[in-house]
């Protein structure tokens, strides 16, 4: 082979060989991105039109937004979102972290327990919601079980209590997803250098302080990632509430996604539904944009070494 042969002399059709890779990766990516973007744009457009049952042309400015923001339904949904979002994220992270720390003690049967804690993630939200709606139903669930066991004055009727019903959604969502947080935290704990713990022991630290000062600070990046994923889930929650409380009692457990559904398909007001959907998108961006910025800063810092 002559040394002058150009390096670019690849066999012909070399790029054809990679065609399947391009098809497999890019086609679905473009289609789904196209869907998401197209519908997001279409929804945004709809939110500025006087559409009701069917899409209509015309421009009404922020009229739909003002209308949505003025409804009691939206206000309750938004308050619920704040309560549910923060309660769910905090409790699910704490439960996940506690489970991870307990599992990290090199206990027997760890694999089995880990699978058990992770399993709820494999169940669809509708199933979770339905099953928990039975469990929490005072007439057939936990309350009845305890009552039948003899403690007849026991009351656990949050599901039908206007003020407490939102917490049943928190409990159910935490049950469903704390295993996910646990799995990520456990991976983080396992990646902590064992010498760190030894060094801390020689420095004279007790187990509590080792966790608080040495091990847990290394989990910050994981915590933030998990929190953002959970928040994202909280903001878009629909099926869980739909199956568990249906937004009730009354509208006590309304969430934004249910409001969107309500406007669009129950009341036949496409314009207001779209406006509510765009408001949800804005909330979502309020969470995601800072996270993306933070990640970008972290990456740049890591690249600089």
């Amino acid at each position: 082979m002559s040394p002058a042969a150009p390096a670019a002399a690849r066999p012909p059709f070399a790029s054809l060989k990679r065609l399947p890779e391009f098809l497999v990766i890019w086609v679905p990516l473009l289609i789904s991105a196209g869907h998401v973007v197209t519908f997001a744009l279409w929804t945004t457009w709809m939110s500025f039109t006087p559409s009701t049952l069917v899409p209509a042309d015309g421009f009404v400015g922020l009229r739909n937004y003002n209308a949505v923001l003025a409804t009691r339904n939206w206000k309750i949904a938004f308050d619920n979102l704040l309560l549910f979002g923060s309660g769910f994220v905090v409790l699910s992270l704490s439960a996940g972290l506690i489970l991870a720390i307990l599992l990290d003690q090199r206990i027997r049967g760890e694999n089995v327990l880990r699978s058990i804690f992770l399993y709820p993630l494999a169940v669809s939200f509708v199933v979770t919601g339905t099953v928990w709606s039975w469990l929490l139903n005072p007439g057939i669930g936990i309350q009845k079980l305890v009552n039948d066991l003899g403690w007849t004055s026991f009351r656990f009727d949050w599901l039908i209590d206007r003020d407490m019903a939102i917490w049943t959604i928190v409990i159910t969502a935490v049950w469903q997803s704390c295993g996910f947080a646990m799995a990520l935290f456990l991976a983080g704990l396992r990646s902590v250098d064992g010498d760190l713990v030894k060094a801390a022991q020689i420095d004279g630290t007790g187990p509590v302080r080792i966790y608080r000062r040495v091990i847990l600070p290394t989990l910050w990046p994981i915590t933030i990632t998990v929190a953002v994923i959970q928040l994202q889930f909280a903001i878009t929650t629909f099926d869980l509430v739909r199956a568990l409380t249906g937004g009730g009692p009354g509208i006590a457990t309304q969430l934004p996604a249910l409001v969107v559904y309500d406007f669009m398909f129950q009341r036949g007001n496409l314009g207001r539904g779209a406006a509510a959907a765009v408001l949800m998108l804005l909330v979502l961006l309020a969470v995601l944009l800072p996270h993306w910025t933070w990640r970008a800063i972290q990456n740049r810092r890591a690249a600089r070494g």
Binding site: D195, A199, R213, V214, T218
Partner: peptide
């Protein structure tokens, strides 16, 4: 006693 570790084991935070 005081100990120096192979991985240094400096507290990262």
């Amino acid at each position: 006693i005081a100990m120096v570790f192979q991985t240094y084991a400096l507290y990262p935070s």
